[in-house]
Design a protein around this nucleic acid. Structure first.
Length: 487
RNA sequence: GGCCCCGUCGUCUAGCGGCCUAGGACUCUGGCUUCUCAAGCCAGCUACGAGGGUUCGAAUCCCUUCGGGGCUACCA
């Protein structure tokens, strides 16, 4: 095993859609392992399926990884010594190897049509035999061959699986063996000459000197095929990469997480106000744990603590209920300027502010009040909106809270007191209000401050009242209370 | 169907033969604190899928069984 060689880990998605939670968990582990070992993190795009992969998806995948902070040493945009890193730009390489496998007798041309194959598979299933290629074209006679050619059939290149079995050591699952009876000859090159994943993945892993393949467990059963290609390429067992098949991330319905059973797009979480470091921290906990009853880990700590040995073999369910509190914790760890810069795009998008310096300065002052009250960045809008609206209005459902006689008398008393207050800061406001309402009218705090809160912020849920009034300013605060009194 | 992988609280997990009357986190339920909402603090509920072995001793090792998942393409 290539222990002495440099660790080179790759993340090689096939962007047939936006990168989702499962992809990213894999990318995160790949990245963390590379960083932990001081090796290289290679980002490769597997776009051999031209029907389904688009340039748009590829650039979104690049953006997503950047946003998450999973920086790569080799790959799109940065290049590297083993490029290109888009498989669609490596077609000639795959063609050369396919030809060589043909020449060596490891692979052969197969003229069976899709229809014929399907019919034979049906028959196999009916006869309760393991379905798979039956080897029909392994040795064609001259007559059969020329017949197919004159028919104009375009052959695929198929890899020959010899009798026997393949055994390899999975870093997470231990020794795994596949009997070749259940690993049929597989296609390397399509009839139109384009390569398949089975060819490209193995060729690239070898050519890019990948030392560790950490990927989803759905690829576990394709590993014997990959190893078969290594052998045809002339690699000795000692030079095969190490394999580690990561457990799935499941949806709530206990099936592999997909678009059908939950929100899977990382972009969706970004737009909802989740922090990249929170997403990474939570995802790191799906299938791995730092031990020692620890859960909150920074990206840096993740790279320090991550080892494949601590990755589980069993699948984990993705649970928003846990992502949210982690996100809240991460928000609370942010310093004010950092939080401000992250929150600003949401406020602008929601039309709360335009982004002027004055507005940002005011937002920054409110941040200490709301930082511990939000679990996602998007929630900040509801919290600070009352400070910026020009057409202030109390929510319909909140009207009853200020309409009754007691509330009205509270509001009137507050208005009178506040009108004569000498300074407009939260300490002075609070002292004055407590003096007249709590001490004077003998009201319970929640009875006294509730109506004022609704009058000033428009809702019974808000940042702390006195600080809110200070930030709102004397004029607007009194205006709003006065307006509420007239109801 | 066949092959392969997996199985600790509702969820994520700690545990790698005795430290486990199974620990932590999230959720949930009470309570404290309190100008609302949060945050914070305290308490509580709840788990080794089942059955056999091995052993002085098993959540930890073996077997069977049940359950879940993946693969079974000219997708990846």
């Amino acid at each position: 095993m290539p222990n002495s060689k440099e660790v080179r880990v790759r993340f090689a998605p096939s962007p047939t859609g936006d990168l989702h939670v499962g992809n990213i968990r894999t990318a995160l582990f790949d990245w963390a392992y590379a960083r932990h070992t001081g090796g290289k993190f290679v980002f490769r795009i597997e776009d051999t399926d031209t029907e389904r992969v688009t340039d748009e998806y590829i650039s979104r995948a690049v953006e997503t990884l950047k946003w998450l902070g999973l920086d790569w040493d080799e790959g799109p945009e940065v290049g590297g010594p083993y490029g290109p890193y888009l498989q669609s730009q490596r077609m000639d390489i795959y063609a050369e190897w396919a030809q060589r496998f043909l020449d060596q007798g490891d692979a052969y041309y197969c003229y069976c049509s899709s229809e014929e194959l399907e019919a034979r598979r049906e028959a196999q299933r009916a006869a309760n035999v393991a379905p798979g290629y039956d080897g029909k074209c392994r040795s064609l006679s001259e007559a059969e061959l020329s017949a197919f050619i004159s028919e104009g059939r375009k052959p695929v290149v198929r890899m020959r699986m010899p009798d026997g079995e393949t055994t390899f050591t999975d870093l997470i699952r231990g020794e795994v063996t596949f009997d070749h009876n259940f690993v049929p000859d597989f296609v390397l090159v399509r009839g139109d000459g384009s390569p398949l994943y089975t060819l490209a993945v193995a060729v690239d892993d070898v050519l890019m000197k990948i030392s560790h393949v950490l990927r989803g467990e759905d690829l576990l059963s394709s590993t014997p095929r990959q190893i078969r290609v290594y052998q045809a390429m002339g690699l000795s067992d000692a030079d095969f990469p190490h394999f580690a098949h990561l457990p799935f991330v499941m949806g709530q319905d206990n099936a592999k997480l997909s678009k059908r059973n939950g929100e899977v797009s990382i972009a969706w979480y970004r737009d909802r106000g989740f922090l990249p470091e929170a997403i990474c921290n939570y995802l790191a906990l799906l299938g791995w744990s730092p031990g020692e009853d620890r859960e909150n880990v920074s990206m840096k700590e993740l790279t320090e603590l991550f080892t494949v040995e601590r990755v589980h073999s069993s699948p984990a369910r993705f649970d928003m209920k846990k992502l949210e509190p982690i996100n809240g914790d991460k928000i609370r760890e942010l310093d004010l300027d950092d939080l401000l810069s992250r929150v600003t795009p949401f406020l602008i998008k929601d039309g709360v502010i335009a982004g002027t310096d004055d507005q940002l300065a005011l937002v920054r002052l409110t941040l200490p009040l709301i930082q511990e009250r939000i679990a996602t960045l998007a929630e900040v809008t509801a919290m600070v909106k009352f400070l910026f609206v020009t057409d202030f209005a109390i929510e319909e459902s909140e009207q009853p809270k200020i309409a009754d006689a007691q509330s009205q008398s509270v509001l009137q008393a507050a208005l009178d007191t506040l009108n004569s207050v000498s300074q407009w800061d939260h300490a002075t406001i609070e002292a004055a209000l407590r003096e007249t309402l709590i001490a004077g009218l003998a009201l319970k705090p929640r009875i006294a401050f509730g109506p004022i809160r609704v009058a000033v912020t428009g809702s019974h849920i808000s940042p702390p009242l006195f600080e809110s009034m200070e930030l709102l300013g004397r004029e607007r605060s009194l205006e709003r209370i006065a307006a509420a009194v007239q109801k």
